[in-house]
Design a protein around this nucleic acid. Structure first.
Length: 407
RNA sequence: GGGUGGUUUCCCGAGUGGCCAAAGGGGGCAGACUGUAAAUCUGUUGCGGAUGCUUCGGUGGUUCGAAUCCACCACCACCCA
């Protein structure tokens, strides 16, 4: 099976500019392609992860990836598919984020010996001279056409500033620069990037009379049509300090039935034959698929060891067993009053509840238990002796646990 | 530059002087049911143990009392230039 066929089979490809050409290039390792990452946060998330996996797949097939960090484009912010403007970031924040991205990317992609490149578009975008720039590439863009682009639709109703409108031009210019500098002949990106990417291929054609190609990756949506990898509290991060391996594992373990197979197909590296076998699983059996998905992804992102720990902790917490790896929290002597601590404070300290009010509600509604026993008294206190040794296993709701011990 | 409309709690959106911590919906959380799924039903959803405290773009003002009235400022949308 060729790489291209595999990508199709996994449902990763959304749109392509020229299917035959792209097949030919990537199947034969002749593509030099780039994917852009704007440094919008201090960690990559699941959406980026898909892009990185794609890079890896193509790299394994002999193609050369370029990871483009958006130190320049990040100064503007992509308005595609958004209803409001992104918050402008300071240069310091952008640089910090870039450093974080770099570190995480190096764990996935092999950048040694020029097998892949890591570049920052701030290197050329910030050097541009406004007038020169306008004369050089301005004539190649039609405002009429830009406005017709799907990605601006929402913004044309809510308002789009000239500032953001330029994003597409910057991204197109990136592609052009990379083509000239590194012979980059292909761009990949999320499906929401389609318009921006076409801008690039068109600019290259108009300026250089050469063909370049673009391909978008299917956005990972759940059965309700929302982007995956997002929780009420925000994104599911790849940085273990922001989303612990346990939380990461749990996110995938709790996925909806309708989405499991799609995720396994799109996100894991399991062979397609194995995935085929799983696709007939139904009902409770699907739970096994969820375990596999959670384990595989956690292993890819955090390593086998962390994945095994997360799996064990989950098993322990949900069906009994060794709790050593369960999420835990140590509290200090200073948190005690008269050598004891009340249940609400424990819930807040362990971050199982965001505030005492919320914690109180949880207790009142019968959602809190300690060492398996339901707690209904909001003024219940625990002495520091009770927290010695193995500590207490606090549980809020069905899925949130924390083992509290004293320092 | 001129005009009109707007800015409400996580989001949408009601509220136009006291009965407002603020309707309704979405989302979240908890409970029941289950398979750590979905659907459904119930409760809950600013902070605080409580008398209470802090919120309705910002700043001042009117009033016994303001999310609601006035002034100025900021931001946004639409229309006219």
């Amino acid at each position: 099976m060729t790489v291209y066929e595999e990508l199709v089979a996994r449902g990763l490809i959304a749109q392509v500019t020229d299917e035959e050409e792209i097949k030919e290039l990537i199947n034969n390792g002749k593509a030099t392609f780039y994917i852009g990452f704007d440094p919008t946060a201090d960690s990559l998330h699941v959406g980026h992860f898909m892009a990185l996996c794609l890079m890896k797949r193509l790299q394994m097939a002999g193609n050369k990836p370029i990871a483009l960090l958006g130190g320049g484009t990040g100064m503007i912010g992509d308005p595609s598919g958004r209803t409001d403007m992104r918050q402008m970031m300071t240069v310091e924040t952008i640089n910090h984020n870039i450093a974080c991205f770099k570190e995480q990317m190096e764990r996935f992609i092999d950048f040694s010996d020029g097998k892949a490149l890591l570049v920052n578009n701030a290197d050329w975008l910030t050097q541009l001279n406004y007038i020169e720039m306008l004369r050089e590439i301005g004539p190649h863009f039609s405002v009429n056409r830009m406005l017709a682009a799907e990605c601006y639709k929402q913004r044309l109703e809510k308002g789009l500033s000239f500032f953001e409108f330029n994003y597409m031009i910057m991204q197109s210019y990136d592609f052009y620069v990379l083509y000239e500098k590194y012979g980059c002949n292909m761009q990949f990106g999320g499906d929401d990037q389609w318009s921006n990417m076409l801008g690039g291929t068109e600019l290259i054609r108009r300026k250089l009379g050469k063909d370049a190609y673009a391909m978008t990756i299917t956005l990972l949506l759940n059965s309700e049509g929302n982007k995956m990898g997002k929780t009420a509290k925000g994104a599911v991060w790849l940085d273990p300090k922001k989303t612990s391996p346990y939380e990461f594992y749990q996110y995938w373990r709790n996925i909806a039935d309708a989405d499991v197979m799609k995720c396994i197909r799109m996100l894991t590296f399991l062979p397609l034959e194995d995935i085929e076998k799983m696709s007939s699983w139904e009902g409770a059996k699907l739970n096994e698929a969820k375990e596999i998905l959670a384990y595989e992804l956690t292993a890819l992102v955090h390593g086998e060891k962390e994945a095994a720990k997360a799996k064990e902790a989950s098993a322990a917490v949900f069906s009994g067993g060794n709790l050593d790896n369960a999420p835990g929290k140590e509290i200090g002597q200073e948190d005690f009053e008269d050598n004891s601590i009340d249940i609400l404070k424990l819930l807040v300290l362990t971050e199982l509840a965001p505030s005492r009010s919320e914690a109180r509600r949880n207790v009142e509604q019968g959602g809190v238990s300690v060492n398996g026993e339901k707690v209904t008294d909001i003024s219940k206190r625990y002495s520091s002796e009770e927290l010695q040794g193995d500590g207490l296993l606090l549980k809020r709701g069905k899925k949130k646990f924390c083992k509290v011990t004293v320092k």
